[in-house]
Write a protein that binds this DNA or RNA. Structure first.
Lengths: 206, 206, 206, 206
DNA sequence: GATGAATGAGCGTTCATTCAT
DNA sequence: GATGAATGAACGCTCATTCAT
């Protein structure tokens, strides 16, 4: 019954985005299998037939829902790590930024989690996620090395440290569950920092 | 065509266990929705009808797959924390134990993850999981307080520390992905310990 | 592979009706449990999925298959009884009409029979049927009273007479079994009339 | 756990009977499809496996549940009709007997009804039932002829009259539904008699 | 002979996907 | 381009039947 929009290139993009956002929300809430294309369509304000005009299949939609935000997240993280401050300062910013993000976007995290976990089913997708994360971890590892060399971080194994931090980040969603506006995330960010063992104490809040 | 066994009480338990283990593996690998009862049955070496002899429904099977190991895990963790050593020594043991366990049982972790994430669908179950975990976190928080009072841990907020550790533990599965016999978990345990900020340095390996 | 039709309101009704007719035929022939949705769908010329587009569940389909014709039947019967002729003339018309109908729709009768018989399973439905029939029996009872007062019917107990007639009507299906075009039903109608004991003899065939 | 009984021939018969009675009750209550072998077994106090020691299949059990009482009923009816009283007196006794029986055994009637209705599924069985009933109807028809010749019944078509009576008998179950100890059945018997149009008025209650 | 654990065919229902409108 | 009616594969679950004990 609504047939405006999507006449222009921009209209198309808006519609595509609406579908993608609805998909992320529902995939997170109910998981891939239980999030119906019809539900997503309704949430996005289109008919379920329309979804297939924008995405070839449910799986393609899932892939887009996972990869597009992840790429943005990676880009942002890399930008922070490529900044100009001292290694430890950049790590601090990174941790704060990411922890806040994870605390806020628990649901998106779920979607990625599902994609990674079901490697058997979402084969390529899981590999692509791993590749993107690897780029971030890898850069983080360099930064840690840098920090150790500068004496800003206690000596240790950079790869392990980076990995442990990623593990921590991933678990954040589970402990902040619905805490709303509490600034718990700030304390959690401080805790995250401990994994890097900065030599000057925990004081952060730059 | 095979229908021996399970005439004895022990036979029953074995069969039930086989199904439960198969269920954990497949729920982890494919998620609740995509793990078919038939697949689970095949994996367990029984017919799909047999599964319903031991579990009333797929949901009941899922519930058992989640709760039974979790309860065992909680019991074990509480036992360690109620030990006689110093607070920090008990925390060390706990961390090593749990990290090793999580590294080994990545797939089980996935199952719990799904149950918690889809609270809308697995309502009661998610609440029960939270309750069990709460018992552990709560006790851990006390132990941390004790450690701080004894000067074995740097001062801080016990609840936050306990929560951050749980978050970390939860993410472990994602970073060890099938690494098999590597003793990476030992390094990860050391990292986990950092979240508690023990005052005497990282050396653990009791 | 066929998917025309039903774009219009009328198309919808036709399709719905085709399914309903197929359902009545098969429910009668095989009973609720053994009439598969797929069989009904095939008989109606649609895929089994389509059935669920028109009826929420097998039970809903059964309910509609029972109640819709029954309501029509009741309406028609009440119209005859509210006519202007003498009481006995109206009863005659009613009996002829209903006996003919029952002789023709034996299979529909089976469906109602099953619904009434399995009250434990089709609780509400059985009650609704009883209510509809009660409306008819009740009106018939009044009409019988009227006929007795006018001396057109031998004296007796109106309720019992009405009930006995309903019992008779219900059994019709069993004795005409597929006799096709025989005018047996006319003789059976005359027999039915005897239950009312009209004072002027059996001659009917108005 | 109970393994007594059935050691003797008599034990066998008792067990067989218990199963048969339970089967009739449940087939009537829930229909062939929904009456589970296990329910019947439980009701009869045996294990479901045992049912198959006495009846080759569910269908065989159903057949026995239908035919055995029916044969007894036919035998009894024929005995009444072969009695020594006048034709009309014998008809009166028959009607009273059968109406009382039907009012009491509504549930058994259901089972026969199902068997007859689903001729497609219970092919032979439906035919056998028809044959048994035919013997009764046929004899009744002779009796009616006899009554007419003796001037005890108004002239008419004996076959139609007999058939209409059977139809009536069959519907009885539906109108007495759970009325318990009311003597409604006596009035219904009087009504049934009207189908035969006895020349001396309705007074029955011999 | 009696039991009940095990089996697997069969069915109701959901939902991604197609395509006529 | 957008819609939603139609399709049919897939899956959870039930239950008659078998057979080792």
């Amino acid at each position: 019954m609504e047939q405006r929009a999507a006449r222009t290139e921009e209209g198309r993009r808006e519609r595509r985005d609406a579908i993608l956002q609805a998909a992320i929300a529902l995939f997170a809430q109910r998981g891939f299998a239980h999030a119906g294309i019809s539900d997503i369509a309704r949430e996005a304000g289109v008919s379920h037939g329309t979804v297939f005009l924008y995405f070839a299949s449910k799986e393609a939609l899932f892939r887009a829902a996972v990869l597009e935000p992840l790429e943005e997240f990676a880009t942002q993280s890399l930008a922070i790590m490529d900044g100009e401050a001292s290694a430890v300062a950049r790590i601090r910013r990174l941790v704060r930024d990411q922890v806040r993000e994870m605390a806020a976007e628990q649901s998106y995290l779920e979607v990625v989690g599902e994609a990674r976990a079901r490697a058997e089913r979402f084969g390529d997708l899981a590999a692509e996620i791993t590749a993107i994360i690897y780029r971030v971890v890898s850069r983080l590892s360099e930064l840690v090395t840098e920090g150790m060399e500068a004496g800003e971080l206690a000596p240790g194994m950079p790869d392990i440290i980076a990995a442990s931090y990623i593990a921590y980040l991933n678990g954040i969603g589970l402990v902040v569950r619905n805490s709303g506006d509490d600034p718990v995330w700030e304390h959690l960010a401080d805790q995250g920092l401990r994994l890097f063992a900065p030599t000057k104490g925990d004081a952060s809040h730059d």
